[in-house]
Amino acid sequence: MNITIIAVGKLKEKFMKQGIEEYHKRMTTLANVKIMEVADEKTPDQLSEKEQEQVKDKEGERILAKIPQQAYVIVLDLKGEMLSSESLAEKLNHLALHGKSKVVFVIGGSLGISESVRRRADFLWSMSKLTFPHQLIRVIVMEQVYRAFQINRGSSYHK
């Protein structure tokens, strides 16, 4: 399976980079994993709603340009469906069994995701009702994808 994670902005914190590198290394025998960053827009504090939408639209255009046409797209979104780790494993297993070998996870910027990216999504996934820094979500997605593969292999990692 080919997994791509498209995320807005550069990862800055060393500990987050190390976490992603660790899970990326663990995934090498399980799937081909690629992480792609797209530039984020500058977001001054006092943006109007219209300006916020413009920022998300520009970031969304960059995201959409990176998504292969045949890919199954999972967008992280507060309005999405919450999944257990086992449900995510089931979903990935189902996709693999039904010929969906390219799966793209999309992580928006600090303002969220554009409507155009939401429309491109095959599935909207909400991690939690909690608010997380979008950079931390990258580490969590990597860990959950790794966990899903371990669940599907019958490994004890996920317990």
Rank of each mutant, 00 (worst) to 15 (best):
I151K: 05
I113W: 09
V104S: 11
I6G: 01
V139N: 03
H158Q: 12
E53I: 03
E81D: 12
D40I: 04
F132D: 00
A148F: 03
N152F: 05
Q144H: 09
D40A: 14
Q54H: 06
E49I: 14
L78A: 14
V55A: 14
Q135K: 08
E115Q: 15
S128L: 11
S84H: 09
K100Q: 10
F123M: 11
L95W: 07
S116D: 09
V8R: 11
L11R: 10
N93Y: 06
F132Q: 01
E22G: 00
M1I: 04
I107S: 01
D122N: 15
H134W: 07
E90A: 04
V103T: 13
R153W: 00
E143W: 11
L78W: 06
I137A: 14
T4K: 09
S155T: 00
I5P: 04
Y146R: 01
L64Y: 01
F132P: 02
Q46S: 13
R120K: 14
L64P: 03
K102F: 04
V104E: 06
M142E: 00
H158I: 07
K17V: 13
K58A: 15
Q46I: 05
E49W: 13
V8T: 12
Q18I: 11
R118N: 08
H158C: 12
V145G: 03
P68L: 06
P44W: 02
I67H: 06
S155P: 04
E143N: 12
G9E: 12
E41Y: 09
I35N: 10
L130E: 06
E81P: 01
K12M: 05
Q144G: 04
I5H: 04
V104K: 06
A96D: 09
Q54V: 08
D122L: 08
F149L: 07
F149C: 02
G99N: 14
K91R: 15
D122H: 13
K50S: 13
M16N: 12
H158G: 11
K25L: 09
S116T: 10
E41F: 10
L88M: 12
K14D: 15
R118D: 09
K10R: 15
V141A: 03
A148M: 04
I151G: 06
K17R: 14
V139P: 02
E90F: 05
G112W: 10
R120S: 02
K58P: 08
E59Q: 10
I6E: 02
E90R: 05
F15V: 05
